[in-house]
Design a binder for these strands. Structure first.
Lengths: 339, 339
DNA sequence: TTGTAAGCGTTATCAT
DNA sequence: ATGATAACGCTTACAA
């Protein structure tokens, strides 16, 4: 086995082979720098021969900017988070940024942020709803832009791009009222999230506008498991609820499973179900799930724009953007009476 | 608005404040280096006061190692990929590595790998089944360890840790035969993947062992959409298949949806369905999906071990690991006759 | 337009 | 055990 661990070519090697200076090499690999076509050609040729490509680490050290954005993501079993991560990554890459991924682990959270920051990321984006406030704040203190794609309770000094959870909850409540339901139950998510708080407020206000209150409520913790228990609890009431709004799709699928499988109910005739997220699996169930959908493309686009702008300008003002949701009616709710 | 964009403290600042040399600072922040308790104490104190933490970029440049692993991931809408990414990230982080994420875009694939490599990642892991061979190979040529978590057709010169797709297909076929099915159809995935090829071979061999052949087959391209069409096609045959094996869970859920929703069939009585991946949504459907499950924890663990070992030792031999699968019987297949 | 030389923030070598 | 000093590979005034 021939050991040809030839260490990679450096700009000096290219310079030597091309018969120019290192600056010339650097310039050829820098957008919009002064190089004559002739030198550029020679450099490119030499670079090709040596299979040279610039060392981004060295470049970063010199430029004091890495072109790296840190993304804090978790709960990827939830399709909506996974999709968000993928879309964010694509978009950032297309803009020329690299991505450092951080999957927080509750155990040693405090070590991770410093590590992320030690890589000198140019900005931080977080998609985790249950983050401890002081983490993003630590990032902010280093002067880097930080954008949260979830509202975090008590963290409104941070930039955010979020979905209109209140509006979403309100839309769900309105739909259920307008399709004739009177005993509307709610399966909530983790109560330490702004997501849950706002979706619930929206629901309550919508019901109130129709002279109703939430018929019953149970906490599903945003998990499928938790929602199975919650559903059993709600369906044991008498009379049973005639509709359930769930704070995410996973939980709505659990409600669907339990109501049909264990209680033999017909959906949507005996029981209407509305989920939240409009995630892929909401289209995969049968009957397909009616769900409130955040406008993910818009959120991603706003976030990336904001991040890129703040990196470029150093703008340190705090911004909040709220993106409207849309209701996707599928088969777990009745059709609206035509007006 | 007070602009206190104080540039972060450097080791020199800490050294000055602590009244020691830069080397002393460096040593205090290096595992197992000779520093007296006294200097360490002084350094740590000064560091705390200045809120200093070492610059990993500079460190990387000097050490010629970044502690970064590149992960190439895609198709995160497929829960099994998302989960794999999360598990890999957790594990690598626990081992002290950082992660550079690359989500390939078919359009400009060729630009991305060089960019990833330019960040001088210590190793590359890929979870994408449809990767173009020359990309991982480019990484290999730089002398870095590359591990594929999917077999890629014609790329067996690369390290791999993969799931026993042949065994999985075989197990599915066997289960269906043993539960009394005779007209077993197959919804295939993209034919340019080793995944699909091996699952199909396993299925065929299992049927052959019971004197059967695949009753009919259609390509679902690993997508939900594709599988809906495929299912309609298969169920239009007469007589209809009495079982369908799908090359992944998304497609199996489509089969479930179409067979029940559009053809009014009872599952598993009229039609048995087996999926592949044992992904979270397979537990969320009703009836819950029987599925062949790769042992993800084991795959992740083997991969991380291999990567870390190869980084440490520089070992350049090519290794292939195949992890056994397990069959998870839920409600879309009949119970096995008790022997 | 091109080259020279001084950083960027660490670590490693080698004296002390 | 500690401190100078030279890398690490690149960019960027500044001068030519």
């Amino acid at each position: 086995m021939t050991k040809k661990q030839q260490t990679a070519a450096r700009s000096a090697d290219v310079a030597r082979l091309a018969g120019v200076s290192r600056s010339a090499v650097s310039r050829t690999f820098t957008e919009g720098a002064y190089v004559s076509d002739e030198t550029r050609r020679k450099v490119l040729e030499a670079a090709r021969m040596l299979n040279y490509s610039p060392n981004a680490i060295a470049r970063s050290l010199s430029k004091r900017a890495t072109g790296l954005v840190g993304i804090i993501a978790a709960d990827l079993y939830n399709p909506v988070h996974a999709q968000m991560l993928e879309a964010m990554s694509r978009s950032l890459q297309a803009r020329g940024f690299g991505i450092v991924l951080l999957v927080p682990d509750t155990s040693n959270f405090d070590e991770f942020i410093p590590r992320l920051l030690s890589y000198q990321v140019d900005a931080v984006i977080t998609t985790v709803a249950t983050l401890d406030t002081h983490l993003p704040l630590a990032a902010v203190q280093t002067g880097r832009p930080v954008v949260m794609m979830q509202q975090i309770l008590g963290a409104n000094v941070l930039n955010s791009v979020s979905s209109d959870d209140y509006g979403g909850g309100h839309a769900a409540g309105t739909l259920l009222c307008e399709t004739g339901h009177r005993r509307i139950a709610y399966i909530s998510g983790r109560s330490d999230t702004a997501n849950n708080r706002d979706r619930e407020r929206g629901l309550r206000d919508a019901l109130a506008a129709h002279g109703l209150a939430v018929y019953a409520q149970a906490n599903g913790l945003f998990t499928h498991e938790g929602a199975m228990t919650a559903t059993r609890q709600l369906l044991s009431l008498s009379p049973r609820p005639d509709a359930i709004f769930c704070a995410n799709d996973l939980m709505a699928l659990a409600a669907l499973q339990v109501s049909r499988g264990e209680f033999g109910m017909a959906v949507p005739d005996d029981l209407a179900i509305v989920g939240y997220d409009n995630s892929a699996p909401s289209m995969w169930s049968w009957p397909a799930l009616t769900s409130v959908g955040p406008d993910m493309a818009e959120m991603v686009s706003l976030t990336v724009d904001m991040v890129v702008r703040k990196i470029a300008t150093g703008d340190a003002t705090v911004e909040h953007q709220v993106v409207p949701v849309r209701m996707v009616e599928r088969q777990t709710t009745r059709e609206r009476p035509t007006a």
